[in-house]
Write a protein that binds this DNA or RNA. Structure first.
Length: 293
DNA sequence: TGCCAGGTGATCG
DNA sequence: CGATCACATGGC
């Protein structure tokens, strides 16, 4: 429930939203959930989502988005940036009786879970496995520059369509330096393209268990990648992706054994429930910046 | 330089 | 089932 006043104004080639809480572009775009937003010299973030290029910054509760009109904001960016969700309330709920979470929520206080496209999330997190964020970004940039649809000058290339990626060979992906993951990209793309993306996009309308089962059936998708796609691409907020940083924080600050993934998942389900995905993102961001490897 | 990174599939007991 | 290993590459 949002009880404070928020107003939207149209400006030259953009919109300004005032009265926004819990919104910090460094937290949102640098917390590891997305890979196509880059910080500019002025401190804003420029990126692209679902084929729409924009530049975003925030100051004192005022969010500015350049590159979209008020109509596009209402139809797309409002949803993408999850502006309808009260993060203050979520932080309060998950931090109750949890000092670690309270600290993590404070550290990443302006995080918002972007409502990303499931296809882009799927390929992005297949690429992400056993890699690091700078390299993941570089790989994805190469893929988009090489095979993404180009629109006008000044716009960024779109994320490549599954119809395009499914027709590629391993040699076509060689320059991207994906390592062993090129095979996964090609096979997963073929699976998605086989029914025109119907199964994948249809997962938006079904329960999380069904979607997870479907994602796990794709070659190169294990429990971690599946949970990332569920959370970031399909908005299944009860998901709790466990990567090395999550294992680290759960073992060091919550007392679990390093490899007790079942215990960690069960703990999240019991304590964070439908908010597990938010909890995970606060913990992940906190762990990456405050825990040593 | 050597260890590590938003892991997964294959194999083996 | 669970444990172990190979996998490609570059950031640090």
């Amino acid at each position: 429930m949002i009880t404070y006043t928020r107003e939207i104004h149209e400006i030259e080639d953009g919109v300004v939203i005032t009265g926004v809480r819990d919104f910090n572009t460094d937290h949102i775009f640098d917390c590891g959930q997305c890979f196509r937003w880059e910080k500019t010299a002025s401190g804003s973030y420029r990126g692209i989502a679902s084929g729409k290029t924009a530049e975003i910054w925030e100051e004192g509760g005022t969010v500015t988005i350049k590159g979209c009109g008020i109509r596009e904001y209402k139809e797309f960016w409002h949803d993408y940036l999850d502006m309808g969700t009260d993060y203050g309330e979520i932080k309060k709920i998950i931090s109750k009786d949890d000092r670690v979470m309270e600290q993590a929520c404070e550290y990443g206080s302006g995080i918002r879970l972007l409502r990303q496209d499931p296809w882009e999330a799927l390929i992005s997190f297949i690429i992400s496995q056993n890699s690091n964020i700078p390299r993941i970004k570089r790989c994805i940039k190469w893929l988009c520059d090489m095979y993404g649809e180009k629109t006008e000058s000044g716009e960024l290339p779109a994320f490549p369509a599954f119809e395009v990626l499914s027709g590629l060979s391993e040699e076509d992906l060689e320059g991207g330096r994906f390592g062993y993951r090129d095979k996964y990209i090609i096979r997963a793309s073929a699976e998605i393209a086989a029914d025109g993306g119907k199964a994948l996009y249809g997962m938006r309308e079904c329960d999380a268990k069904t979607a997870e089962k479907y994602l796990r059936s794709l070659h190169g998708v294990g429990p971690k990648v599946a949970n990332c796609v569920l959370l970031f691409g399909l908005q299944k907020y009860g998901s709790f992706p466990l990567d090395v940083w999550m294992k680290r924080i759960m073992s060091r600050l919550y007392g679990f054994k390093e490899n007790d993934l079942k215990g960690m998942s069960a703990y999240a389900a019991e304590h964070y429930g439908m908010y597990s995905g938010f909890a995970q993102q606060y913990l992940f961001y906190y762990a990456r910046d405050n825990l040593s490897g």
